[in-house]
Design a protein around this nucleic acid. Structure first.
Lengths: 198, 198
DNA sequence: AGCATTACGAGGCATCGTGTCTTGATAATC
DNA sequence: GATTATCAAGACACGATGCCTCGTAATGCT
């Protein structure tokens, strides 16, 4: 349980860690009930039954709370069961990624954070440091790499695999279809397996 | 010069189109001077030497103004000169896209809009309707398609080409390197040319 | 030219969110 | 049982929003 950023959380020890947990639960609930835009620091405090100063004591922005509230869920949802065939492995991951970004509360939170990151440097650092999608993508790629001799280095390969999925959702809100995901993995895996075509 | 959304801009015709232009110029300037986050409707009006009501008369949100102010610049910057070889054509486009998203004022505006779109449905519709990146990408792909027999249908192909570039910038703020862009185009073009590897 | 219409700049207004500060109650430590 | 410090609650100043009202000036129609 990191103390988040904000410096140390105060000299005295927290009388109740439960205040932190109440806030995180409140944020979880409010996110699905009213969405990110309608969430306010004041509203979070009231919903959590907590003083406003208590919220500010541990987090300095909505983004920090949201990230802490959704990180573990996100990591769990993007950690797909390995499949025997590489193509199935990649496809299962991309489908999980799509579900995450379009329907999961944690995914919606992540998209909101990604949005804030575009005009707030501090949030950008938070998102980059968490790197939820990059980490999950790399895990899958590590399993597939032995079967794909021509796969580029991790950063580019991860971008090639997940980038199209992420970008389309961020730009339009509508994900690639399962058929498109299948075509994408097939083409990419083919290129990674076959080697450069000069 | 479209009248933007907002319904009709009012029954009477604009006494001076110059008010609109002043606002658009002010937004352009303020975007580079203070960034999107610091921009306010009040500030825009004052900077443009215009009453606040005048701003609200023609645009209902900051996002609408920003989109109108940067659309033509964006389209121009993403319209790259065709190259003889398909690989060069794709690479030149991706480099232009990278420059656009990381250094151009219009590109920064577009990223800010993309950010807002993640928690504002109305903005999402605006961005989707404009579809600046998708349009530019499709134009390039149309030139390359004759040389790439196995290229998927336009929506997927566009996502495969531009998605990784866009996603990495949105997620980290740091673009793919020129070398990575070159590797990406080479691999993609190879896969599109060679056909499915089953 | 003259009149009605309507946008215009300026700024007041209520409302809301933010982040800080204060208060009185409550729990932990000695 | 006294001291200390956290806590919930809410007051506060500030800034942004979007609406509304002025008096003014430009436009369209006759």
């Amino acid at each position: 349980m990191s103390r988040t950023a904000h410096g140390q959380p105060a000299p005295g020890r927290p009388r109740s860690e439960s205040a932190r947990i109440a806030v995180l639960h409140a944020v979880d609930d409010m996110l699905v009930e009213q969405g990110y835009a309608a969430m306010t620091m004041k509203g979070i405090a009231e919903r959590a039954g907590v003083g406003r100063q208590t919220v500010y004591r541990w987090w300095s922005t909505k983004a920090e709370i949201l990230l802490e509230a959704s990180t573990s869920d996100a990591a769990h949802e993007l950690d797909v069961e390995p499949r025997a065939r590489p193509a199935d492995d990649l496809l299962a991951f991309l489908e999980a990624l799509t579900t995450f970004l379009t329907t999961s509360p944690a995914g919606l939170a992540y998209r909101a954070l990604l949005g804030e990151a575009q005009h707030d440097t501090a949030v950008r650092e938070l998102v980059r440091a968490a790197d939820l999608i990059g980490t999950a993508t790399s895990a899958v790629l590590a399993r597939v790499r032995p079967h794909a001799a021509a796969m580029p280095a991790p950063p580019l390969a991860a971008a090639q695999l997940a980038g199209p999925v992420v970008a389309v959702i961020l730009e339009t809100g509508v994900p690639l279809t399962p058929a498109q995901l299948a075509d994408h993995t097939r083409l990419l895996l083919g290129a990674w397996t076959a080697g450069p075509q000069r």
